[in-house]
Amino acid sequence: MSPRWNPNPDVRTGRHVVYNLHVHLVFVTKYRRGAMTDEILTRCEEIMREVCTDFEAELKQFNGEVDHVHLLVHYPPKVQLSKLVNSLKGVSARLLRKEHDSHIRRYLWGGHFWSGSYFAGSCGGAPLTVVKQYIENQKRPV
């Protein structure tokens, strides 16, 4: 099979699928406490990048503030988003607490790091109005 030219590197192929799935995730620290420092955010990004790699996903963008982080993740359709989120939050919480316990303990207690909730928004590709119009305009047989 010869490699095909692909003008969009975000469009990936699997054995039976062609996909381009991106999600914007936001995780907030428990009680929205400002436990993050630049050093902790840097380490958090490293951890989350490794977790994404384990899921055959790619962390495209990462940033945050003292009480939350934003991620842009490109992931394959075989990945259950909830499992990816649980791993991202669980692994990062465990390692960040282990590596920065003296700082984090001042802001967060009871073994918690992240709030139980999160934001996930699908993104990328054409706007919904364009997709709806494209589907509407298909040449349906009479």
Score class of each variant (00 low, 15 high):
Val11His: 11
Glu46Thr: 13
Gly124Arg: 05
Glu136Val: 03
Trp109Leu: 03
Ser92Thr: 07
Thr42Ser: 12
His100Gln: 01
Pro3Glu: 15
Glu45Phe: 04
Arg140Thr: 12
Val69Lys: 05
Arg12Ile: 05
Val79Cys: 02
Gly34Val: 01
Glu39Pro: 05
Cys44Arg: 01
Thr53Asp: 10
Ser87Met: 10
Gly14Met: 06
Ala126Trp: 10
Val85Phe: 01
Asp101Pro: 01
Phe119Gln: 04
Ser117Phe: 03
Gly14Thr: 03
Arg49Gly: 02
Ser102Asn: 08
Gly125Ala: 10
His70Val: 03
Arg4Cys: 10
Asn6Asp: 12
Leu84Lys: 01
Arg4Tyr: 13
Val17Glu: 15
Leu21Trp: 01
Glu65Ser: 06
Met48Ala: 02
Asn86Asp: 15
Asp101His: 13
Phe27Asp: 04
Leu88Ser: 09
Val18Trp: 10
Tyr75Gln: 00
Ser87Glu: 13
Glu56Cys: 06
Asp10Cys: 14
Leu21Ser: 05
Thr42His: 09
Arg15Cys: 06
Val11Met: 11
Arg97Phe: 03
Gly14Tyr: 07
Cys44Glu: 08
Ile104His: 04
Tyr134Glu: 10
Cys123Trp: 11
Gly121Phe: 11
Val130Gly: 07
Val23Asn: 00
Val28Met: 00
Leu21Glu: 02
Asp54Ala: 09
Asp10Phe: 14
Gly110Gln: 11
Tyr134Thr: 10
